[in-house]
Design a protein around this nucleic acid. Structure first.
Lengths: 334, 334
DNA sequence: AGCTCTAATGAATACGTAACCATTTTATAT
DNA sequence: ATATAAAATGGTTACGTATTCATTAGAGCT
């Protein structure tokens, strides 16, 4: 790979490397005639400045690392789009990593190897040591979707309220046998949503049935297993409260392929209100942010602010939620 | 941002910077006792090598730029996942950009600003000048999904055959009034698929109806407009051949929200066989690669090969296709 | 012409790493 | 003990840029 440097341009234009640099960064300081010479040389040699070298001296990389959950979860489709696009519009490039909880720490260390201007994380655990590590390294970062037990630097929806509203919606439709299929309780999102679910049951004096409760690893297989176990219950639940839209989509898939009709045979509600849930073929009833703000977008805005103002403010954003009524929930049949 | 460098580690451990570098890169060349000292210092100062500085001297960035289409097209969900994950497994980071055709050149120039080890493009136009530009810069690259008129360095499915099979499938179900809703003909994918569609009609002696043919800009709005125009035809088509699964999903959404039943009232077939098309609620009949290889995965494998072997082979991969029969197409009612 | 002030340019250096070459230390053979 | 080879370490430099400081050219004035 032949690389043409600013020195080559300088030699070709008969000026110093400094002047070449000036033409690109502070063009007002250089005479028009010189500028022309240099620009011509740049054109002719098709010179492109090396962003790596620049970041070495400027101590600014223009790169943000995104540790996102996997894209087969449509929530991360929406957020990744918002994050990458907003960052690009503001002159940042985004290194994207799709992380699963199993090899979280590998992902972290590989991400830290590279000096970046900031990091944005979706997959932090409640008591993840990465939190303190990033703070010690004084690298700007923010979490979205999930949050750390420290309750700092996060953007989320009101997860407990979301779980509560989801369950209460089903209760108000007359359901009593309401299952919960969520994700691991080591992440704030599922933990709080599950708390909300329990709170709603309690409020309406419905006794929790341990056979109805599944904390999956949010993999397709594990969710399918939960669904099958539910179908094998003696008292099949008439409704399922899903810990996330992605879980709901998987459950819908399982229900449909075992011949069940939604919502006639079973009601399913999600949480997140991802774009896909509004598709005509899905029409998933779900709970999501009232403002319909994209959490990724909120997070990246704040992160870039932190980077550019160079101060580490405390960011705690919790979006209020409501039910988005669609066609996967219906009154209980008797 | 305080940065601790290998010099700091060296001073702390009482060795030279060279030795620190050696401990990390060629540990066999350094005595155990020294190694311990250095590793201890690294630990204590929580030193992390600066990948930028390294790439400056090694002339290798470990970064690949991905110019992908937007994620609301599920095809790019599948490919982006495959590309990012495979690249990460092989020690590369991926700068992701989501490009729309309107501001393609902006995206290019911003991407080129940064020296990267390779580029992978989904959105190249048939006669895109970027092709020659990248070749001149001798930066390894490959295109997937679409290809350039030069017919080099691409991974695709057999698009003409795909269009042909899609249309013929509808014809064999008894349909004669078959619409085409695709994307711009300036991209190879849609151009060739449309050719296949026409070929099938011709083979079965069905006359093309210009009122049935729409080359949209693949935006939601434009597709909706096409759908509405089709519904306003005097002879409504009984089936639609979509230029891509993403188009098909949009059409399904339009059909369902205007009260039509699929496939009873209208048959819809896609091309790409994206993961989502197999979801229970979608069950989109579509045409896709026989091997079900992910095009993104094929492309990134080849790209990394090119990077590491440092030779620019000619890559032309065209995957054979077949129909994946699901539930959005049915016999024509009379 | 001589002076001052500003505009325009260049030389030298730092950034953090790996590579190259030189040197010192240690082990092995005579 | 000495010579010789091998192992281990250090000094210096290059990578491509932006920055700092020094210098030169030119404009405007008396």
């Amino acid at each position: 790979m032949i690389v043409v440097s600013s020195k080559d341009v300088a030699k070709h234009a008969g000026v110093s490397q400094t002047t070449v640099s000036r033409v690109l960064n502070t063009p007002d300081l250089v005479k028009q005639k010189t500028k022309d010479k240099v620009l011509k040389a740049i054109e002719k040699l098709s010179y492109v400045p090396d962003a790596n070298a620049r970041s070495l001296v400027q101590k600014k990389t223009g790169v943000i690392t995104l540790l996102s959950g996997p894209l087969h979860n449509p929530f991360f489709v929406d957020t990744t789009t918002a994050i990458v696009n907003y960052a690009n519009e503001n002159g940042y490039r985004v290194n994207v990593h799709f992380v699963n909880d199993k090899k979280l720490s590998e992902a972290y260390s590989s991400a830290i190897e590279n000096k970046v201007d900031g990091m944005i994380l979706s997959c932090i655990l409640l008591d993840d040591p990465i939190f303190e590590r990033l703070k010690r390294m004084s690298i700007p970062f923010i979490t979205y979707n999930r949050k750390h037990k420290n309750e700092e630097l996060f953007v989320e929806i009101d997860n407990e309220e979301a779980g509560f509203l989801a369950a209460e919606h089903l209760i108000q439709l007359g359901h009593k046998d309401i299952a919960w299929v969520g994700g691991p309780l080591t992440v704030s999102t599922f933990k709080n949503r599950f708390e909300g679910y329990k709170k709603a049951l309690k409020k309406h004096r419905i006794i929790e049935n341990p056979l109805y409760i599944f904390h999956t690893d949010s993999s397709k297989n594990d969710i399918q297993k939960a669904f099958e176990d539910l179908q094998n219950c003696i008292n099949k639940p008439t409704a399922i409260c899903s810990g996330a839209d992605s879980v709901a989509f998987n459950l819908m898939n399982n229900a449909l392929s075992s011949g069940l009709k939604i919502p006639e045979d079973i009601s399913i509600i999600g949480i997140d209100n991802v774009d896909l849930s509004n598709h005509g073929a899905m029409q998933l009833t779900t709970v999501g942010s009232i403002t319909e703000n994209n959490l990724g977008r909120l997070a990246i805005e704040k992160l870039i602010e932190m980077i550019e103002l160079e101060k580490s403010t405390c960011i705690q954003i919790t979006e209020s939620v409501k039910v988005f009524l669609r066609n996967t929930t219906a009154k209980r049949k008797d």
